[in-house]
Design a protein around this nucleic acid. Sequence first.
DNA 1: CGTAATGTTGACAAGGGTCAAGCTTAGTGG
DNA 2: CCACTAAGCTTGACCCTTGTCAACATTACG
Lengths: 224, 224
Amino acid sequence: MLSHNAIQAPSTRIHPDVPVTRHTATQLVPPAFAPSQPHQVILYASNAEIYGQGERATALYQVEFGAVRVYRLLSDGRRQISAFHVAGEVFGFEADGHHHFFAEAICNSAIRIFRQPLGADIARGILPIALKALIRAQEHLLVIGRQNAAERVAAFLLDQLERQGGLPQVELAMSRTDIGDYLGLTIETVSRVFSKFREKGYIRLQGVRTVELIKPEALRALCV
Amino acid sequence: MLSHNAIQAPSTRIHPDVPVTRHTATQLVPPAFAPSQPHQVILYASNAEIYGQGERATALYQVEFGAVRVYRLLSDGRRQISAFHVAGEVFGFEADGHHHFFAEAICNSAIRIFRQPLGADIARGILPIALKALIRAQEHLLVIGRQNAAERVAAFLLDQLERQGGLPQVELAMSRTDIGDYLGLTIETVSRVFSKFREKGYIRLQGVRTVELIKPEALRALCV
DNA sequence: CGTAATGTTGACAAGGGTCAAGCTTAGTGG
DNA sequence: CCACTAAGCTTGACCCTTGTCAACATTACG
C-alpha cells in the first residue's frame, strides 16, 4: 500500500533524516538533579533520541515542555509514529524491560526522567495513564485501519485542537512527514488534504505550522 | 480508502450481522459461581456480546476457552477489530469507568469475569498485562499503517502460529470478515492474499479455517 | 543573500476497494 | 440421510484513492 518498492535505497525517499543520530541527545544543560535523586530533567535538542528500540527500559518519561514522537521502523525504513506526546504527558512504558519503540524530541524539549523501579503504589498511579495510552492506541487503529485520508487528517487536527485546550489557533510541532507517518499516509497526501480543507474554508494556514480551524464542526462531521 | 461511499445503507455491505444482537449473550449454563463470589465463569454463544461501547466498565475478563474480538465501529458501520483474545488472555481494561469498545465471542466461549474493584495489589498485577496490550496495539499500528495487504496477512498468520504454540497447523477461530476488519482490509483482499500464498506454496488450506503454514520463513521475510 | 530543507502541486500508475457472479460449506428440515 | 438453503468464501472486471515521481515554491538557516 505504501512504499512498496521499498527495496530501493532507504536513503532516497524514506526518511533520510530518521536518525542514524542515536545517542546524540544533545544535553543542552546539565541535569537539574543529581543522579541519586529520584528524577532529573534533561533537555533534548530537536530530533534528539530519547531512547531507542531494544534499549533496556528502566525509566518513565514526562514531557516538561516541547513535544515527542514515539515510533517504530520497518527494516526498509518505513516508519509508523504511534503517538505524539506534549507537555505533561507520560510515556516510555515497556512490558519486558526493553523498549520496543524509539522516542525522539520533535523540537527542543525538556523531559523529566524517573529512573527508580516501580513500587506497588506507583504501579497503581501509572495504571490509569497506561490504560489511557492503550485506549488512544486502539482508537488510532480505527482511524488508520478504516478511515480515508481526509478523515484521518480531520481526526488529527481535532486531536491537536483538543490538546491545545480548544483555542482554534493550532500550533503544529511536527512536520508533514511526521503527520504522514502518524496517519499512515505520504506527505503528499497530507499536503493535498490540507489544501483541500483550505479551499473548502475549513482551515486557514498561517505559515506552514499554524492552522486555524475555522469550521471544526465540518471536520468533526468527517470523523463520524 | 475503505468503504468510501459508505453513506449507503449500512445493511447492504457493511456487516449486516455486526451486532444489533446486544445483550443476547446467550448464557448457555448458569454461572459456575454465586454472584457474591469474587469471580464467575459465563459461557457465551458464538457472536454473543460480552460488553458494549458506552457500558459502565466494572469488570475484567479472562478467556477460559474460545476466542473473543474487541472492536470499535464508525457510525456508518465500518468496523476495526483492535484485538483478538484466546484462552488465558485478559481483556476489558478501561480507563474512565466506561467501555470504549465492543467485545464479542467469536465462537462458543467461556469467560471468567472478575467484578471486584481493583486494589493496589491487583493494579500491580494487571499493569504488565495492560502494558503488553499497549505494545501489541502499537505494533499493530505499524502493520496497519505501513504494510501492504500481503505483509498484513503474513503478520496475522505468524501471530496466529505463535499463539497456537508454533505447530504449523493453524486453526482460525475467526471469519475472513473478522480478519479483514482486524487488518484494515476487505474480505476480498484477504481472500486474494490467501490464494496467492497458496499458489506460491507458502500455505495449504484444509478447509477454509485450517491453514497449514508450509513456509513460515517466506511469510516472515514479508514482514521485514 | 544563497543554499538546503520542507512543503505544494501535477501527472501518472498501481494497490486495493467495489460490484457481481459463482463456488463451498454448514445448517436445517423433510 | 439427503436435498435445499443460506451464509461464507473465492474469483474476476473495473475503477478510485492514494502512492510515486518530478518539478516548483516556500521557509529556515548559515
